[in-house]
Design a binder for these strands. Sequence first.
DNA 1: TCAAAAGTGTTGGAGTTACACCCATGA
DNA 2: TCATGGGTGTAACTCCAACACTTTTGA
Lengths: 225, 225
Amino acid sequence: MSSPKKYITVDAVVFGYEEGNLSLLLVKRGIEPFKGRWALPGGFVNDNESLENAVERELNEEAGITLKYLEQLYTFGEPSRDPRGRVISVAYLGLVRPDAFELSASTDVIEADWFNINDLPKLAFDHKSIIDKALERLRAKITYQPIGFELLNTTFSFSELERLYSSLLGRPIDRRNFRKKIMSFGLLTQLSEKRKEGPGRPASLFQFDEDRYKTYLEKGLYFEL
Amino acid sequence: MSSPKKYITVDAVVFGYEEGNLSLLLVKRGIEPFKGRWALPGGFVNDNESLENAVERELNEEAGITLKYLEQLYTFGEPSRDPRGRVISVAYLGLVRPDAFELSASTDVIEADWFNINDLPKLAFDHKSIIDKALERLRAKITYQPIGFELLNTTFSFSELERLYSSLLGRPIDRRNFRKKIMSFGLLTQLSEKRKEGPGRPASLFQFDEDRYKTYLEKGLYFEL
DNA sequence: TCAAAAGTGTTGGAGTTACACCCATGA
DNA sequence: TCATGGGTGTAACTCCAACACTTTTGA
């Protein structure tokens, strides 16, 4: 029987969205292995912290960021995925609003930055496949849970929401039908303010009603597309 | 900084279905902690095996069973979930056909048996919450992926399929509509044999067409309810 | 007054639901 | 011939997809 203890890490796939682009948080490694290579933020789990706490701590240490949305994604445990030995990584999926985009690197990390999801650098370990899994989950999930709102600021215009969905799903969305559908859930509050920037008619601003969402959840909500 | 190595185990939530009842595979522990208590089959991961291999090995050792369907469920890592110290468990969800129901216990296990899902004994560790998570996943998943077939024998009658769905979803199903829906996927082959046991008109037998399903998957299938 | 983006309804068709009677078999 | 479970069709309705013009603003 082999030694039962193994290294265990957490890694975070954190998505942000700004100006029509989905972006991903990466850190440049300051230590071996893969020193100087870009990688997902993450690291070893301490003895007395939960996995989720570990992710939150690492995100704070390595990128100076705190997330509102974080869920467990998948656990990667192939024996050869890490040159240091047997390392099992529990991956998390996180979403961050544009107003929390400022980063500050430290702890084993040279820098932290946002990358366009279609233009990623070469990555350390098996992090590319972790990201692929996260993208798949994100795309599936926005069609049946209102997590898209976690990628926008607390107030947003309808066309911002529409562009987000359209770019995430990779297909055009009918403005009128989309609006009808989203409105039918009754989870948006229309504010009296309007956004006036750039050309064109100013857009009304909306806000997602989390309290009402939680109430619905208890009776089972069917959010679809 | 605390010691980075931890214990890592795999646990399997294996469901079976027979005569209208969903059942769950449990093993009675032969060693401490929780000696004599029922628990999910599982155990420590060896150095050179993948997580999935570890589950398969443990299921074979502890219950003498091999599964056709196995997927990763969730990773449980609360610091206090195991009295032996910090133990992180990667849980898997498995399905087994009635024709592979015979069990044979060994290795650290006193016996292995099937339990009705509504009549479970007191369980070791946090295994109850692992089971709850698995049930939730199973119920959600049968509505959009044809995994229900993994719980039936390779040939089955339509009413068996219908009873399975109805009991898993906990609500009655309209026989005619259900048949129309399932048939519209074109994934069932009707056999010429009929099942003649018990009273009533004999039922035609069907078979799930896995090849055709795989073909569909590549173009994106929308199996819904 | 032009350009740019926001906002708004209707209609046809597809898909879902609701619903009840006849069929084949063994006792 | 009766009891048991298997098998089938239609009509109303709901939901979804397709589609184009008007409004508001700044330049």
